[in-house]
Design a protein around this nucleic acid. Structure first.
Lengths: 190, 190
DNA sequence: ATCCTCATGTAACACGTTACATGATTAC
DNA sequence: GTAATCATGTAACGTGTTACATGAGGAT
């Protein structure tokens, strides 16, 4: 409905966090780190940039808060207009699906250039990491299951757990597959 | 071994592509799009920037090729020094595991702000996309299975297929879970 | 004839990351 | 008493994305 110009997702992420209640930039940054960071990380400095932008758009209001010991701060809250923009964005389906981005896969892809044992070791590590994080997310999910208000948060935790579990399984299978054939040595000379 | 300053992964991606044979910037860009784009996309303009950087580092050589109909071009090839740097990088295990980044999950996370039917529709779409791409990657993987030289490329295709399959399964489960409880309406006020 | 794509790339901008600043408290 | 952390943010830089340029050949 609103003929909005397109803003980056991070802007909406900040608004989303603000929709749960007013916060300072600093608080928002730490809150982001504990909540959405698993699938959308936002650096501190980005938070501040987005807040200025949002303020100039009228999507947030700020109130100065003086402090004695700590530096003064500004508490931001989402305006009606901001909330409308956020809801509008949330309702808009993405044209393109998310693209994966993995340095690890890049290394695997060019794996023929290095010693296969070394690559296998890297895949093992990657698998273990994935397994551990998957378990961590599963236990978070378990705790969330009891709270009916958290169903969407729960869903994101479950996806993370599931994807990482698949990754860990892949690592196991891949290592097996790579170990079977006659072990090839480093392909160094061109 | 080499006391290298840290370069971005994209630089090594370009070197990796060049390790398969000399190409022009344009060719590299299209080649990237057909090969590594699934897990590491590189824009045309980035390719050129990386090539200049690599040239000034002595990691690639360029030769001018005059053309009559088409614009002249420069063909780049990886030098020994470049190959060494690439191999060095490939051998270095990543300190941090890759972080996921998904706009879709961002929307799900804040899903309580919109109508649940709309969100369900988005999850359905996402799941279908994932399923389709998973199948596409599986069939690519199948073709790669016959070629013993492609084992690492195969591995990346399989991971993509597996992760996307898990995503699609998650979508199905999540939709079921969201439909069960008394359907809640839009949470618009405050 | 005009429009689109191919084949080459360059330029501008915007997002994301890392480093810097600063004073009070807590830790050792 | 020096060092790390907390609580606030700002500044600088570098990666990544989008738009611009240009001429030939193919499509309709």
């Amino acid at each position: 409905m609103s003929p909005q110009e397109k803003l980056p997702a991070t802007t909406y992420a900040v608004m989303g966090l603000l929709s749960q209640g007013p916060r300072s930039g600093y608080d928002l940054a730490s809150y982001a780190e504990m909540s959405i960071a698993n699938f959308w990380s936002v650096a501190k400095s980005q938070v501040y940039r987005e807040l200025s932008r949002l303020e100039s758009l009228g999507f947030v209001d700020a109130t100065e808060v003086k402090q004695q010991a700590l530096p003064d701060k500004r508490i931001y809250s989402l305006t009606k207009k901001g909330e409308a923009a956020l809801i509008d964005w949330l309702n808009t389906p993405q044209p393109q699906p998310d693209r994966m981005r993995s340095m690890f896969l890049l290394k695997v892809f060019f794996g023929n250039l290095i010693d296969s044992d070394e690559l296998i070791r890297m895949i093992e590590d990657h698998g273990q990491d994935a397994r551990e994080t998957s378990i961590r997310l599963s236990s978070i999910a378990e705790q969330l299951e009891t709270d009916p208000n958290m169903e969407y948060v729960l869903a994101t935790a479950r996806l993370g757990a599931k994807v990482l579990e698949a990754t860990a399984d892949w690592a196991d299978e891949t290592i097996k597959a790579l170990k079977k054939p006659a072990k090839r040595k480093v392909n160094k000379g061109r």
